[in-house]
Amino acid sequence: MKDVVKTFLGRPTGIAGLLLLAISCLMAVSAPILYPASPWEMSGIPFSAPGENGMLLGTDTLGRDIASGVMHGARVSLLIGIVSTLAALFVGVLLGCVAGYAGGTVDTVIVRFTEIFQTIPSFVLAILFVAILSPSLGTIIVAIALVSWPPLARLARAQVMSVTQREFVQAARCQGQSPLSVMFRHVLPNAISPIIVTGSLTVASAILIEAALSFMGLGDPNHMSWGYMIGAGRTVIRQAWWMSFFPGIAILVTVVAINLVGEALNDALNPRISRS
């Protein structure tokens, strides 16, 4: 454990990622304190440039505060990113473990089922789900989780398959431990590192999918999100760059941060790197 932390902290990119991510989280936490009013409030003069009329980052076409939108948008983006990834992890790891551990027909069936999802471009599938279920926070999370689990399932399956062949697992089996116990006490702890890394990157892609959905008008119309702000501002980008620029930067920073953290985590959780 100490090695892991040390390796992680030894990576400047990891520290930078962590700091940037902290900023995003801070924005999400402090949004209701700094901007208690709704981000939909048309509180300013429309089309104010950043700094104009007392608006830090300017206002959009209806006079809504961009700064407030970016702060509140962080809540939606992070919430959707994390919750949908957790859901995807749950489904993916569960199916992956069952497939990898059981093998045989069960494995074939699960792999084929996963392939159905993998053959359809995930973003198109997400659009389809949201359009069918009608957009709301819940349905967007479900849609993103539904398109994010297959890679996790395949990874979990491969990991479990390789770990299950090791001697210590066979030893545990010979001792008569129940499959569940073998799975949770011996297999998973030794298979989980790459899954955690992939999971962290899945958060980033979930945030991007949410942003793209909102951009296309398939976001929850009652929650301000970064993708929505870009989508709403893009039509006037020649007259008012700031409406799409700042939320765009917010997405960029958050996604880069998560990727940097993921990379550093990858190195840290790899015993060959962290112990050398």
């Binding site: 709704s38 939909w40 409030e41 048309m42 076409t61 209806l62 359009a131 009608s134 957009p135 008008g217 398939l218 119309p221 009652n222 709403a232 039509t235």
Partner: peptide
Amino acid sequence: GEMWVRTAEYFRQAVAPAGIEVILDSYD
């Protein structure tokens, strides 16, 4: 399209000061 969405968003904010809450539902 956009104009219709903006109008709905505007209306939601416009009636809020009088204590009327409007929830937007998207449709195809």
